[in-house]
Design a protein around this nucleic acid. Structure first.
Lengths: 196, 196
DNA sequence: GTCCCAACCAAACAATTGCTTGGTAGGCTA
DNA sequence: TAGCCTACCAAGCAATTGTTTGGTTGGGAC
């Protein structure tokens, strides 16, 4: 068995684990569940991974790295505030589309996992995410693109919640693409649902 | 010990359990956790309740009954569509304020619990909630209060998600009351964040 | 004073959990 | 052909889980 196969198998197992973690929660998924779904015995998982924790660790940290690189690219761009906000929203729905298991795990288990030292980076990433959005929204208010009376902190929370919780109902291949959803949400967010 | 005390003790234990379920999740909370927090031994809980499941059952079903009675009152009122939507939003944030443990449990564990026959009413309540919102939003579009190009189904999901997930960060006694939050959210929802 | 009963304790139960150990199959390299 | 290494099996471990059982306590009713 070649090196390529080795890495493939490892990734395969991680993908299976991610699916189960996302569906049933981390704590609620047993190593036997993962092994069964992979067609091996539970003990054999420990040839590939140190522990159940290190599996979810690898799943989450890999995803977060990619996600925040994308946010940084938006921040670093020279678009105006409104465009940056639009890009950040679209980027988030795209992440849900491409990494829905990872997003679901983060949504459901990050609070609980974050208590352990090993997962301290989760809280750090949360802080970083807040930074990104607060910067964009503040910039938006100051540039006159957004209404001046906006509570920026609260707006950040509303956006964050609405965007990420969509992972609970969004299904790739469904009637609406992640782009459709981003479009609709941006319309509502920017201009509201009331008739002009 | 009088009958009054009996009912008090039972409610006391349920409240303690609700707090733990909300904080750590249903599956992740052990009967020993509940017993410890109550100052008794785990076995003694079974004098009051059939099972751990029946505890969460009682917590959730009691709450849902109260909540949906409130929704029904809004629907039955003779306000215009926009006012009804405002009332439904305010009512939801008020529920988060008054029953945050119950809301949190519903948010975090309803999906998992709903798979068991015993908790079939959870799915039923979800359907009911969708009904309420779809009715209000459709009425809003038809009456001209809301923009005609609105995707009502999607809008329902956005509202539901944003409102209920607020339970994750809202803290009673904090800087913002549930009324403040409802005001801000309604402004954003109805008129958007963009500068007019 | 006797009885009752709600509330609880003490101890154990089988099942399930994450994980370990020692071994084996079989393809790859030399 | 020999040796090596990856991937896995088979069996078991201690800890933790929800729950059960039989007994104790102490206040209220008659």
């Amino acid at each position: 068995m070649t090196v390529e196969n080795t890495q493939t198998r490892r990734a395969e197992l991680l993908a299976i684990a991610a699916g189960l973690f996302a569906e049933k929660g981390f704590k609620n998924t047993t190593v036997r569940d993962i092994a069964d779904a992979s067609g091996i015995l539970s003990g054999s998982l420990y040839h590939h991974f140190d522990s159940k924790e290190s599996m979810v660790d690898e799943i989450l940290s890999t995803f977060q790295e990619e996600l925040f690189a994308a946010y940084d690219a938006v921040l670093a761009g020279d678009d105006d505030a409104r465009t940056k906000i639009e890009r950040a929203v679209r980027l988030s729905f795209e992440a849900i589309d491409r990494h829905r298991h990872e997003v679901a795990i983060f949504q459901n288990d990050a609070d609980h996992l974050g208590k352990f030292e090993r997962f301290g980076y989760l809280a750090e990433r949360n802080r970083q995410s807040r930074e990104v959005w607060m910067t964009l929204l503040t910039e938006g208010v100051e540039s006159g693109a957004l209404r001046p009376d906006l509570d920026v902190e609260l707006t950040y929370r509303f956006i964050r919640d609405t965007v990420w919780v969509a992972v609970r109902w969004y299904r790739p291949g469904g009637k609406l693409t992640h782009r459709d959803i981003a479009d609709q949400y941006l319309t509502i967010l920017l201009d509201g649902i009331a008739h002009a």
